[in-house]
Computed example of a mutant assay.
Amino acid sequence: MIKSHSRWARPIALALAASLVASCGLPRVGPDKNEIFAGSVQREGDAFVVAINDRVTRATAVIPALGFSETLKNASVQGADIIRPGDTLGLTIWENVDDGLLAAEMSNSTTLESVQVDGSGFIFVPYAGRIKAAGNTPEAIRRIITQKLEDQTPDPQVQVRRTAGNGATVTILGSAGAQGVYPIELPTRTLSSMLASAGGVTTSSEIAQITLTRGTHSETIWFEDLYDHPELDIALRDGDRILVEADQRAFTALGATGSQTQLTFESRTLSALEALAQLGGLNASTADPTGVFVFRNEAPEIANTVLGRTDLIGAQRLIYVLDLTEPNGMFMARDFLIRDGDTIYVTEAPSVKWNRTIAAVNGTLGGARGLATTVTGGSTE
C-alpha cells in the first residue's frame, strides 16, 4: 500500500504546483509590453501608443521659452542715488551777502541737517518752498533749490546730501552666493553686476534660472542666457526681487531601470538617452531594451501633429515607445526630448517572467514533495 501511495505522489505534487502558479499572480515591476499595447486607443483603450521616429521627435521637441519682456529690456539705467520717501537730507546753503535770507548774523551759510522727505516725496526749504525730492538725485534737488533761491538772494550755492535712509535697494534670494538686501550703486545698476556683487550663483550654471519680480509681475530667464544675450542684462529698479534657483523640472522612472525614483533635470534639454544614463542605465539582468516607454499628457496641438489628426481637443494621453535594439534606436533615444512630468517605464524581458515562473513551480513542487512524503510516511519511492 505504501508503494501505491508513492506512485501517485509526484503527479499530485506537479498538478498542485501548476494549479498554484496558475491561480496566483507572480511578482513583477509593472505591466509588460503586451498589456501596454492592449490599453491603446487602437485597441479601444484610453491612450495613444506611438513609436518614436524622426517626425515624432521634431513634433515633441518643446523647450521652455524663458526671457524678459520688451518692457524690462528697454528700461533705461537708473541713477545710482535716487531719493525715496522717508529719506532724510542734509542741506547747506551759502549766500553771497553778509545779511542773507537764511544765514545767521556774521555768517553767510545755513545748514539744515534733518530735512525728511514726506510720504508724498516732497521736502520744504525756507524761501524755496515745497520741492519734489523723491525720484530725483541729490544733484537734481540741488539745481531745483538753487533756481528757486536765485530770485531772492544773489548767487546762492547749495549742497544736498542724504544723511539717512537706504536709497534704492534690491533683494536677492535663493541659490545666490550671499542672500540679502543690496543697494543700487553706480557699479551695480544692472542685473549681472548685482548678481556678481552678491557672489554669483551656487547651483549649476547650466540649470540655474533667474526670476525678477517687479511689483506683482515676475519674469524668468536662464542664467547662462544673461551672459550670452547682453540685452537681457536689464536695468534694476528700487524694490526689485531677484530669485536664483535650480531648474525644478523632473521626471519619474519606473520598471527595470537602474533606479526607480524621481529625478530633476541635469541640463536645459534632456534626451531619453541622457535620462536613462542619469538613472544608471537599464538593468542588464531584467530590462527589455525593446520596451522603453515614455508616458505623457500631451497638449492637443502637439498630439494632433504627432497622430496626423485635427480633431483632438484637450490634453491627450500618449505613450511613446523606443526600441533600442533597432539600427537607429540609439539615435531616436538621443533625439527624443524628455519633458517636465514625464514617466519613463522600462518593461521586463520575457525571459524574466519565464524564469520567475520556473522558480515558482520548483518552489511549489518542493512543497508538494514534502506533502507527499508526509502522506507516504516518509518514503518517496
Results as ranks from 00 to 15, higher is better:
residue 169 T to P: 02
residue 62 V to G: 03
residue 184 I to F: 00
residue 132 K to E: 15
residue 214 R to M: 09
residue 89 L to K: 09
residue 365 L to Y: 06
residue 319 I to A: 13
residue 309 R to Q: 08
residue 117 V to C: 02
residue 304 N to R: 07
residue 347 T to P: 03
residue 261 T to I: 03
residue 265 F to M: 03
residue 192 S to A: 13
residue 245 E to Y: 10
residue 142 R to V: 05
residue 106 M to P: 02
residue 145 I to V: 14
residue 30 G to E: 10
residue 175 S to A: 10
residue 304 N to W: 04
residue 31 P to H: 08
residue 51 A to M: 06
residue 93 I to W: 00
residue 246 A to L: 00
residue 238 D to M: 05
residue 254 L to H: 05
residue 215 G to L: 01
residue 373 T to V: 07
residue 275 A to M: 00
residue 289 P to T: 06
residue 227 Y to V: 11
residue 178 A to F: 05
residue 303 A to Q: 06
residue 49 V to W: 15
residue 380 T to G: 07
residue 248 Q to H: 06
residue 123 I to L: 04
residue 261 T to D: 05
residue 351 S to Y: 03
residue 337 L to H: 08
residue 353 K to N: 14
residue 332 M to Q: 14
residue 286 T to W: 00
residue 195 L to M: 13
residue 264 T to E: 01
residue 271 S to Y: 09
residue 142 R to E: 14
residue 300 P to V: 08
residue 196 A to L: 13
residue 311 D to F: 04
residue 22 A to W: 04
residue 353 K to P: 11
residue 123 I to C: 08
residue 197 S to T: 12
residue 231 E to P: 01
residue 108 N to M: 05
residue 93 I to M: 07
residue 123 I to A: 07
residue 336 F to I: 11
residue 285 S to R: 05
residue 327 P to L: 08
residue 73 K to D: 04
residue 211 T to P: 14
residue 307 L to I: 07
residue 80 A to D: 09
residue 6 S to H: 05
residue 13 A to R: 09
residue 236 L to Y: 01
residue 65 A to Q: 11
residue 106 M to S: 09
residue 221 I to E: 05
residue 309 R to D: 01
residue 88 T to C: 02
residue 279 L to N: 14
residue 123 I to Y: 02
residue 129 G to F: 02
residue 282 L to A: 12
residue 161 R to C: 01
residue 12 I to F: 08
residue 350 P to N: 14
residue 62 V to T: 13
residue 129 G to S: 07
residue 365 L to A: 12
residue 298 E to N: 04
residue 309 R to P: 01
residue 18 A to Q: 00
residue 63 I to Q: 14
residue 30 G to I: 14
residue 298 E to K: 04
residue 12 I to K: 03
residue 188 T to Y: 11
residue 90 G to I: 09
residue 150 E to S: 15
residue 193 S to T: 15
residue 5 H to M: 06
residue 278 Q to I: 04
residue 376 T to W: 06
residue 331 F to T: 14
residue 184 I to C: 00
residue 124 F to S: 10
residue 81 D to K: 10
residue 346 V to Q: 07
residue 263 L to F: 00
residue 13 A to E: 09
residue 186 L to E: 10
residue 51 A to V: 15
residue 113 E to Y: 09
residue 156 P to E: 13
residue 162 R to P: 00
residue 49 V to H: 14
residue 225 D to W: 04
